[in-house]
């Protein structure tokens, strides 16, 4: 039976860590020198064991387990990357058409001293935050705000950095009545119009239309344990077998990992995560992401506006795999 969330998948590790923490507390209080030395020695061995276990757990991580890591509650979210990687960020809100969305955030900032426009899905860490962010499921106004920011980026010649982290676009009645499909499609199309460089980083969940809506970028990068899928595994299982609980099986069938996306030629680079994933060493993760964005922006900066557009068209034009054979006959 597969674990159904990241916490339960790491449960043994957590037990071990709790045990180590208790042992440290016990050792701190110990007055007897020889007993203290014995405890310290035990703690070192336990920590060695923990490191080994952690390394083993994160070696050959399964596809479904990557889904769990990508969804983990403590994983760095868009706002964390904004704070760590950029300066002078000002959040801009509203679609100027009657609605505001909190699942997609964005605004201008400085990246290594240069102006860029940031757009990204924002998840919440606790129940009230999650509700406020609508579980990072953007409504039409989220994509329409993104379009507004893309246009502004073009006007002021700023590269666009997207952070992708959504289970899906919002599927509710409100979203349908305001044209969620049109909003996503228009956002994708707007991205192809841009002559400024665009870089998308999938930091967690790349959930279908909701993700590609802000990720039709010159470069698309994925963190090692992020996922990118045409449909959530549970949704796929619901359609294929009418059993959402067969998500783990669907995750394997969908080939939704960064490694598989790269093998199909659909992304440009995989950014390695620290041992135990981004959440164990966010600082290390931020440094890797920062370096990667700088590298790709540097490569794109030398292109003329026309070349930027043409290269983006050419990149997506190639995507797809099919055979060419003798025509079908009835």
């Amino acid at each position: 039976m597969s674990a159904m969330d990241h916490n339960s998948w790491e449960s043994e590790l957590r037990e071990l860590e709790t045990f180590i923490a208790n042992a440290k507390e016990r050792s701190r209080k110990e007055q007897n020198e020889s007993d203290k030395a014995l405890l310290e020695d035990q703690i070192l061995k336990l920590e060695e064991g923990r490191d080994k276990y952690l390394k083993a757990l994160y070696t050959n991580v399964g596809d479904w387990e990557k889904v769990l890591i990508a969804r983990a509650q403590k994983r760095p979210y868009t706002q964390d990357y904004i704070t760590a990687l950029f300066q002078d960020f000002v959040e801009l809100q509203g679609d100027r058409n009657g609605f505001a969305d909190n699942a997609i955030i964005g605004g201008p900032a400085l990246f290594e001293g240069k102006p860029v426009m940031i757009v990204g899905h924002q998840k919440g860490r606790n129940i009230s935050e999650r509700q406020f962010r609508n579980f990072a499921m953007a409504k039409p106004e989220g994509y329409r705000k993104a379009i507004r920011l893309f246009e502004m980026a073009e006007r002021f010649n700023m590269p666009v950095i997207s952070f992708v982290d959504t289970p899906a676009a919002d599927p509710g009645v409100e979203s349908e009545s305001r044209g969620i499909s049109e909003a996503i499609a228009a956002s994708i199309m707007k991205m192809f119009e841009l002559s400024v460089p665009t870089v998308a980083v999938v930091i967690g969940e790349g959930g279908s239309g909701g993700a590609i809506g802000i990720a039709a970028s010159s470069r698309v990068l994925m963190l090692q344990y992020s996922v990118y899928s045409v449909i959530p595994p549970e949704g796929c299982a619901a359609i294929l077998w009418r059993m959402p609980e067969r998500g783990p099986e669907a995750a394997r069938a969908l080939k939704l990992t960064a490694q598989q996306a790269q093998s199909f030629g659909l992304i440009d680079e995989i950014l390695p995560e620290p041992i135990g994933s981004a959440q164990r060493s966010p600082i290390e993760m931020f440094a890797t992401v920062k370096e990667a964005i700088a590298k790709h922006l540097g490569e794109l900066e030398v292109l003329t506006p026309d070349q930027v557009r043409e290269a983006r068209f050419a990149k997506f034009r190639k995507m797809g795999q099919f055979d060419t054979v003798a025509p079908a006959k009835k």
């Binding site: 199309m189 590609i212 899928s229 997506f316 797809g320």
Partner: peptide
């Protein structure tokens, strides 16, 4: 909708076809 059986390749057809509308 997009064809599940081709996974992310199908999702990318959304971008590819939309880019063609732009043309």
């Amino acid at each position: 909708g997009a064809r599940m059986q081709e996974g992310l390749l199908s999702l990318m057809q959304m971008a590819k076809t939309t880019a063609a509308v732009q043309q």
